Simulated scan of single mutants.
Amino acid sequence: MIHAISKITLYVNNQEEAKAFWTEKAGFEVRAEEQMGPDMKWIEVGPAQGDGTVFVLYDKKLMEAQNPKVNVGHPSVMMSTDNIEEAYKELLEKGVSVGEIKRMPYGNMFQFEDMDGNQFLLREDTMSGWRTGIIS
Rank of each mutant, 00 (worst) to 15 (best):
I2L: 12
I2G: 05
I2M: 09
A4V: 01
S6H: 11
S6C: 13
K7P: 03
K7R: 15
I8E: 09
T9W: 02
N14L: 09
E16K: 10
E17R: 13
E17K: 13
A18E: 00
K19C: 08
A20E: 11
W22I: 04
W22M: 14
W22A: 08
T23M: 01
T23G: 05
T23E: 01
E24V: 05
G27F: 01
G27M: 06
G27L: 03
F28A: 08
V30Q: 03
R31S: 13
E33H: 05
E34T: 14
G37T: 05
G37H: 06
G37A: 04
P38W: 11
P38G: 10
D39G: 02
M40W: 15
M40Q: 15
K41I: 14
W42F: 02
W42S: 03
W42H: 02
I43C: 00
E44R: 09
G46F: 10
P47R: 09
A48M: 06
A48R: 10
A48G: 03
G50P: 00
G50K: 12
T53G: 10
V54C: 07
V56R: 01
L57I: 06
Y58W: 13
Y58H: 14
D59T: 08
K60F: 00
K60T: 08
M63A: 12
M63H: 01
M63C: 03
E64Y: 00
A65R: 14
Q66N: 14
N67L: 07
K69T: 15
V70K: 05
V70E: 08
G73T: 07
G73I: 00
H74V: 09
P75C: 10
P75A: 07
V77T: 08
M79K: 05
M79Q: 04
N83C: 10
E85W: 01
E85D: 12
A87H: 03
A87P: 02
A87Q: 04
Y88E: 04
K89E: 11
E90S: 12
L91R: 05
L91M: 15
L91C: 08
L92E: 14
L92H: 13
K94I: 03
G95E: 05
V96P: 07
V96S: 09
S97I: 14
S97C: 11
S97K: 15
V98N: 10
G99S: 15
K102R: 12
K102P: 05
K102H: 06
P105H: 07
Y106K: 13
Y106D: 15
Y106E: 12
N108S: 14
M109R: 10
E113L: 11
D114F: 05
M115Y: 03
D116V: 04
G117I: 10
N118V: 11
Q119P: 04
Q119H: 11
Q119N: 14
F120V: 11
F120K: 04
L121I: 14
L122P: 01
L122R: 03
L122W: 00
R123C: 14
E124A: 02
E124P: 00
D125E: 15
D125M: 11
T126F: 04
T126N: 12
T126S: 13
M127K: 15
S128Y: 11
G129V: 07
W130Y: 14
R131W: 06
T132N: 08
G133S: 00
G133T: 05
G133M: 05
I134W: 12
I134T: 15
I135A: 05
I135N: 06
S136N: 13
